[in-house]
Design a protein around this nucleic acid. Structure first.
Length: 420
RNA sequence: GGGGAGGUGGCUGAGUGGUCGAAAGCGCCCGCCUGCUAAGCGGGUGACGGGGGUCAACCUCGUCCGAGGGUUCGAAUCCCUCCCUUCCCGCCA
C-alpha cells in the first residue's frame, strides 16, 4: 500500500496513477476520513494527556476527583470508539489504492500498448508443418487431458511418463541455475497461506475471487510462490548487510481462472493448477530498478540456455496490475501455435508490498526502512514445456531433448516419435 | 486430540496493580585508550502515530510488553476469548 502521508502530500499523483492503471482509488474519501480521524485523535490524545497527569497522583485522589476522572474516562472511550471506526475504514480503503507506476512505464491501456524491448534468437524453421504441443504430446502419450478432467474437473491437466519426467527435468534445471549460478537460496514453502499473507502481496482484498480458498483455517492455496516468499520476513526488521536477499522456490500454483475456456486456452496453457519456479528479491530501495533488470536477465537466461526464442515486453501502465511499480513480461515462441506464450512476469513493487507485509531493514545506526520487493517467474513450467515441445519437434513427431536438460534425463537425447 | 509451561525492545532476558517504555547483557552509534586489529573504558541507542517547528537529525503529546475484549481513578502486571511457541501423552504419513 501507499503511505498515508504520501497520499496526503501527493493526492493528484495517486489519483492519476490509479486512473492510468484503470483502477478506482478512493483518494477523496481517504483524505476526508483522514482529516476527521486526525481531529478526533488530537481530541482524544489531549483528553488522555489530562487523564494521565491527574491520575498520576494515585492513591491521594479524593472521591470527588475519582468521580471526575471516571467521567473523563467515559469521554475518552467514546472518542476512541468513534476514532477506531474511522481508522478501520481508513485502513480498509488504503488497501484499495493501487501502486503508482514508475515514470519509465509507457502509457497505454491494453496489451497492444506494451512495448517489445528486445527479442532473443529466431523462431525455429521447419521443413514440415510444425505441430502444436497438444497434438504432439497426445500422440506421444505424454499428456492425459481427459483423465485429469475426470478426476479433478476442467482446467486440470496431467503429464505421463517421459512427459512428467521432462517437466521435472525443466524444474530441476531452473532451480539449479538460480541456486548455483545466480545466487538464489532455495525455499520449499507452505502451499497454504494465511489471509494476512494474501493481503501482504496484494492478492487480497481486491482479488479474492482469483484464489482458491480453504475454509478450514481460512487459508488460501498459493496462487504463486510469490505469496509465501514475499511474506517470509513479514513483521521483521532485517539487518542491512543481509540485503539483497534472493529466494527461489518451486511450487504448484492454484488459480481459479474464472471465465469460459476458449481457443486461447486449448492445451497445456491455462490451468487451475500448474507449477512454477519463482524468484523473489528483497533489496534496499536505492537501485531496485536495476535489480529488476537483473531479475529479468535471470529469467531470460533459462530460455537462452534452452535455446528458445523469446521477446521481452515492458508492460504499459494500463496492463501492469494493481501492485506493480514496473513490470516486464517474457514471452516464448510456440511454433506450433504460431504465437508467443507468456512464460514469465517480472515486477518491482517499490515498498508497496513491504508496507503491507511490514518488511523492514535497518542500516547500522539508522532507522528502520521498508525494503523493496521484486519477483519474477523463472519460469512457469507448462508453457515453457509447450514451447520446448513445439520448438524441438522432429518430422517424425519426436522431441529432441535440449542439451542442458539431458543430465536430468539420464542422458536421453531424443524422445522418439510415435512411429519410431 | 488430552495435560503442563510460555509469548516483553534488533537479539537474549528481568519485571506480578501506580514512581515501567520497561533492569541487565548482546548488538549498534559516538568518543577515549591501545603504534594496526582484538580487548578495555565512558556516553548514547525501541517502534508507530498526532501536533509544533529557524521544517531529515529539535520539542511535545499519545499508543504499543502475542492479538482482541474486560476489571480499575490507574495494567506488561488481574480476568475472558483467540493466535502462536514449547514440553509430556495419544494418533499418524
Amino acid at each position: 500500500m501507499l503511505a498515508l502521508n504520501f497520499i496526503r502530500e501527493h493526492p493528484d499523483l495517486v489519483r492519476q496513477g490509479a486512473e492510468r492503471k484503470g483502477e478506482p482509488a478512493p483518494v477523496d474519501e481517504i483524505l476526508e476520513l483522514d482529516g476527521q480521524h486526525r481531529a478526533l485523535l488530537a481530541e482524544e490524545e489531549s483528553a488522555r494527556s489530562e487523564m494521565n497527569s491527574r491520575a498520576a497522583r494515585g492513591a491521594g485522589l479524593s472521591p470527588g476527583e475519582r468521580e471526575e476522572l471516571g467521567r473523563l474516562k467515559g469521554r475518552i472511550q467514546e472518542l476512541q470508539q468513534r476514532r477506531k471506526q474511522l481508522s478501520d475504514r481508513l485502513s480498509g480503503l488504503l488497501l484499495l489504492v493501487p501502486n503508482v507506476p514508475h515514470e519509465s512505464v509507457p502509457e497505454g491501456v491494453s496489451d497492444d500498448d506494451n512495448v517489445v524491448v528486445r527479442t532473443w534468437g529466431e523462431p525455429p524453421q521447419f521443413d514440415f508443418e510444425p505441430r502444436t504441443h497438444y497434438d504432439l504430446g497426445e500422440a506421444l502419450g505424454i499428456f492425459d487431458f481427459e483423465r485429469a478432467v475426470k478426476i479433478a474437473g476442467s482446467r486440470f491437466a496431467m503429464l505421463r511418463g517421459v512427459g512428467a519426467r521432462l517437466e521435472r527435468a525443466l524444474s530441476w534445471f531452473m532451480l539449479d541455475l538460480a541456486t548455483k549460478e545466480h545466487g538464489y537460496l532455495e525455499i520449499s514453502p507452505p502451499y497454504l497461506v494465511s489471509r494476512d499473507c494474501m493481503v501482504g502481496t496484494a492478492n487480497l482484498p481486491k482479488f479474492e475471487e482469483d484464489a482458491f480458498h480453504v475454509v478450514e483455517g481460512d487459508r488460501f492455496l498459493v496462487p504463486t510462490a510469490e505469496v509465501p516468499l514475499t511474506n517470509l520476513y513479514r513483521d521483521e526488521i532485517l539487518d542491512a548487510e543481509r540485503l539483497p536477499i534472493r529466494h527461489v522456490a518451486w511450487t504448484p500454483c492454484w488459480r481459479s481462472e474464472a471465465g469460459a475456456p476458449g481457443k486461447d486456452t486449448r492445451g497445456y496453457i491455462r490451468l487451475h493448477q500448474f507449477s512454477k519456479v519463482e524468484l523473489v528479491k528483497f533489496v534496499r530501495p536505492e537501485g531496485s530498478l536495476e535489480e529488476l533488470e537483473s531479475l529479468v536477465g535471470d529469467a531470460e537466461s533459462v530460455l537462452q540456455r534452452l535455446g528458445l526464442h523469446y521477446r521481452v515486453r515492458l508492460m504499459c501502465v494500463g496492463d501492469m496490475g494493481f501492485a506493480q511499480w514496473k513490470k516486464y513480461d517474457i514471452d516464448a515462441w510456440a511454433p506450433g501455435l504460431q504465437r508467443y506464450l507468456e512464460v514469465s512476469s517480472c515486477s518491482v513493487f517499490g515498498d508497496f508490498q513491504a508496507r503491507r507485509a511490514n518488511v523492514r531493514f535497518r542500516a547500522p545506526g539508522g532507522r528502520p526502512e521498508f525494503v523493496h520487493t521484486l519477483n519474477g517467474s523463472g519460469l512457469a513450467l507448462p508453457r515453457t514445456f509447450d514451447c520446448l515441445l513445439e520448438s524441438y519437434q522432429t518430422a517424425a513427431g519426436g522431441i529432441v531433448v535440449p542439451e542442458p536438460l539431458r543430465p536430468y534425463m539420464e542422458g536421453l537425447e531424443e524422445i522418439p516419435g510415435p512411429g519410431e
